Simulated scan of single mutants.
Amino acid sequence: MSVWYDMNVVLIQATLTTLLLALSIQVPIRFGVFSFAGVGAFGIGGYAAAISMVQLGWTTWPAVLLGMVVAGVVTFGLGLVVQHLTGLYMGMATIAFTLIVSVLAVNGGDLTGGAMGIYGALGEIEVIHLVLVVVVVAGLLQLTEIGSMGRRVDAVRDDPELANALGVDVARYRRYSFLVSGLIGGLAGALTTLLRSTITPAEVNFHLVILSLTAIVVGGSRSWQGALIGSVIFVWLPTVIGFVAEWERVAYGFIVAAAAIYLPTGVLGVAKNAWHRYRTREERARVAAAEKV
């Protein structure tokens, strides 16, 4: 086990940070907001953490906290600006936000290191730290998926008019989804940067949108568990399909297309439906057996 862990520690780290990035996109989608601002928050958090360590001499966790808070505040401000947009227009605006973050990093001079980025921001982060962070984030998100809070979130996403009629402030819920998205995205960016010890503008780009969105589509968009499944699949998949070599991108595209067509609720949705059918059959069998007696 120790040998396997040592050989795959980088993949384990990547799985956990990718999960956080995917969650930063999944949260607003669960609230009915087609937003990719979490990717921009990823860049902001990464740069803020790197600058605070390299230029200000901060230690690891204060730098991570700073990246998280700055990204959350900026993304919440973005949410206030674009709150009246919906659908495709919201998606375009938040993708533009991500690209603007990248452009500002390129033109940030000595502060951001320009096109070369920032190097030497190596934090003292172990896998156990990442696991604890992910457990806390997942636990908090789980509270929004169950009970009365879960029902309100579902209503905000599926029928905002009905939610408003029932006294749920849909606009407020959706604004705060930007804040949560920014905090998680900034956390992901800060942790990723301090694990790699570097961040460049090229890392904060549209490819992160594709990665996080495909992880959600394949895993499932209605729960953090779906984001976990998707993150595991897309981080570990290259080790499985490495034999396809230059056809790897084609294989990725095929998997995503097949999931979108045949697994509209993601792997998690299929698993839940299968479990529900199994429980239903078991219950019917018990009722039939009791009637015979």
Rank of each mutant, 00 (worst) to 15 (best):
T18N: 14
A115S: 13
R249Y: 14
A258P: 05
V256Q: 05
G38P: 08
V218P: 12
R152T: 05
N205T: 05
A258F: 14
W4M: 11
G109W: 08
T192I: 00
Y262C: 04
G150M: 08
R249M: 15
F42T: 04
G185E: 05
R249D: 15
T59N: 04
F243H: 05
E124K: 06
I100S: 04
M116E: 12
V137A: 07
L130D: 02
L237M: 14
L141D: 10
G113K: 07
V54N: 03
N164A: 11
R157Y: 08
V133C: 12
D6E: 15
P28D: 06
E246G: 06
T280A: 12
R152C: 10
V39G: 04
Q83M: 13
A50G: 09
I233G: 03
R174N: 01
G226H: 06
G77L: 15
T17W: 02
S197N: 11
V135P: 05
V69H: 03
L104Y: 09
G253I: 09
T17K: 04
L187Y: 07
E283C: 00
G72D: 05
I216E: 10
F36A: 11
Q13E: 15
V133T: 14
S102Q: 15
A285Q: 13
H207A: 08
Y173G: 12
G87T: 13
Y5C: 00
E203N: 02
E203S: 09
L208M: 15
I210A: 09
L65F: 13
Y89G: 01
F36P: 03
A215I: 01
W275T: 07
E145M: 13
V39W: 04
G108R: 02
T198I: 01
A93F: 10
A260C: 04
V10A: 13
R281W: 13
V244F: 11
G38E: 06
E124T: 06
Y119F: 13
A227P: 11
L141N: 12
D110Y: 00
F206E: 04
W58E: 01
W275F: 11
L21E: 07
A163L: 11
R279T: 14
V9Q: 10
S24M: 05
G182Q: 09
Q26R: 07
R196F: 09
F254N: 00
N107I: 02
F42W: 10
A155M: 14
S231H: 08
V134M: 10
D158K: 08
E283V: 01
N8K: 01
E126Q: 14
I125T: 07
A48W: 06
F243R: 03
I233A: 14
V73L: 14
T144A: 11
W275V: 13
G226Y: 07
H129L: 02
E161H: 05
P201N: 02
G230K: 08
L141F: 10
T75E: 03
G269C: 03
V156C: 10
F234P: 12
S35R: 10
V133F: 05
D110P: 00
Q55V: 00
P160S: 08
A259M: 00
V74S: 01
Y89I: 01
I125H: 03
T15A: 08
V270R: 13
G87I: 07
F76E: 02
Q225V: 14
T265L: 10
L194H: 12
G108Q: 06
S52N: 00
V136P: 11
L187W: 05
A165M: 11
L23V: 07
L141M: 10
A71D: 03
T98L: 15
G230P: 12
